[in-house]
């Protein structure tokens, strides 16, 4: 359950004030499949970053699963991010020195899971995402679709309640993009809240709830 109340985020560019989010009120129930669309600069990525606790709003409150997370300290927010939220990025953001398996293992290391336990969980995840034979390849040796699969595996290994995807197919061709979307939707079917930010109308239309944004405000919200 995500509840945003009068959230505002203001950036200062020189002496100009940019209101990226302007008194946003939004409620997303657990297990929803939401797309956020809008032109560049409409505030949709900022909204995703606030929901993902990467960005702090200047005002307003944010309640996640019944907890007011705006009031948490930096360290506590990091823990919430780790345990409740998974990020999928357009440019994958894999660490180039680490193998696919090691990239997937990172959240477990941050969480402090014991090595033996880590190993079995990574193996299971590799199998689930059909990455077993790519486990010891570095990102440079993987195709775009495989990289995004590794990124999604990393985002979901700690079983987050919400998966936030920012243009997840933006760097992929049509066919692999469709595979990645199918994978995300499978995770949604398994119960994860899925929020997708995209320019792609086709991808946006697949969601069950469509939010449109312009100039930092929600201008459309239809199911």
């Amino acid at each position: 359950m995500i509840r945003l109340t009068e959230i505002s985020r203001v950036f200062h560019m020189g002496d100009q004030e940019v209101r990226a989010l302007n008194d946003i009120n939004l409620e997303i129930a657990s297990g929803e499949y939401v797309s956020i669309m809008g032109p560049s600069g409409s505030g949709k990525s900022t909204l995703l970053n606030v929901v993902g606790l990467l960005d702090r709003p200047n005002s307003g409150s944010y309640e996640l699963d019944g907890t007011n997370v705006t009031a948490l300290s930096e360290t506590e927010q990091a823990r919430v991010r780790r345990e409740k939220i998974g990020f999928v990025f357009q440019s994958f953001h894999l660490i180039p020195r680490l193998t696919a398996a090691e990239n997937i293992e990172l959240p477990l290391i941050l969480e402090g899971v014991a090595p033996a336990d880590r190993k079995t969980r990574v193996e299971a995840t590799l199998d689930a995402f059909e990455l077993r034979d790519r486990a010891h390849h570095r990102p440079a040796e993987l195709s775009g679709g495989q990289r995004q699969r590794v990124a999604i595996a990393r985002a979901t290994i700690l079983k987050p309640t919400a998966l936030l995807a920012d243009e997840p197919t933006g760097n992929l061709d049509h066919r692999t993009g469709a595979e990645v979307v199918a994978l995300l939707e499978a995770l949604h079917h398994a119960g994860t809240t899925l929020i997708v930010v995209t320019h792609d109308r086709e991808l946006g239309a697949r969601a069950h709830r469509h939010i449109s944004m312009r100039d930092g405000e929600i201008v459309g919200d239809e199911k």
């Binding site: 990091a78 991010r81 780790r82 345990e83 939220i85 990020f87 941050l110 969480e111 990393r154």
Partner: peptide, 10 residues
């Protein structure tokens, strides 16, 4: 940035 996004505290 990525480490922070996947939940690494400062």
């Amino acid at each position: 940035g990525l480490l922070k996004a996947i939940g690494a505290p400062s």
